[in-house]
Amino acid sequence: MLLKGIFLYFAAVILLSAVLMITRRNPVHSVVYMLLLFFHIAGVFVLLNAEFLAAVQLIVYAGAILILYLFVVMLLNVDKEKLGSRAHRFWPWMAGFGILIAGEVVLLLLRGSFPVNPELSVQQTGAGAEALGIALYTRYLIPFEIASVILLVGLVGAVMLAKKTIKE
């Protein structure tokens, strides 16, 4: 009962902060709502006994990625963003793709099967870190390596774009 109440609190705040995040005019405020969102997602992970994932969620998303967003957003001219119109001529395309992706997610959720008792799936020694490591490096080795290669490509691409060309 108590757990359900806590879950409902997390779910409500996640939805609310997600909506507020995309509706704020001030991009810095959006980032703050996103931080709130990440904290509550970490809370849901804790409820599922996945302490390791909760910590990683905060370290990777809140601690690294979002800080860089904030860095870029603060250098923007916020006042200009406030005055600009929100919709432009590509909005039907954007809405269409949004609905398509949302539909895919719903379809996958309907077709997939999830363990009914979450405590069985992740309650391991070491807060799931060991189980996660074994799963990633044996059963899901190829997808995991592909993901890391994609990240590496992004890294190299960023360096190439930022590099100054020296004329001979």
Binding site: A42, E51, F52, A55, A62, G63
Partner: peptide, 14 residues
């Protein structure tokens, strides 16, 4: 916490 050190690290980064 089983992930005590990660928890402290996460808070430091936030």
């Amino acid at each position: 916490l089983n992930v005590g050190i990660l928890y402290v690290l996460a808070l430091a980064s936030v």
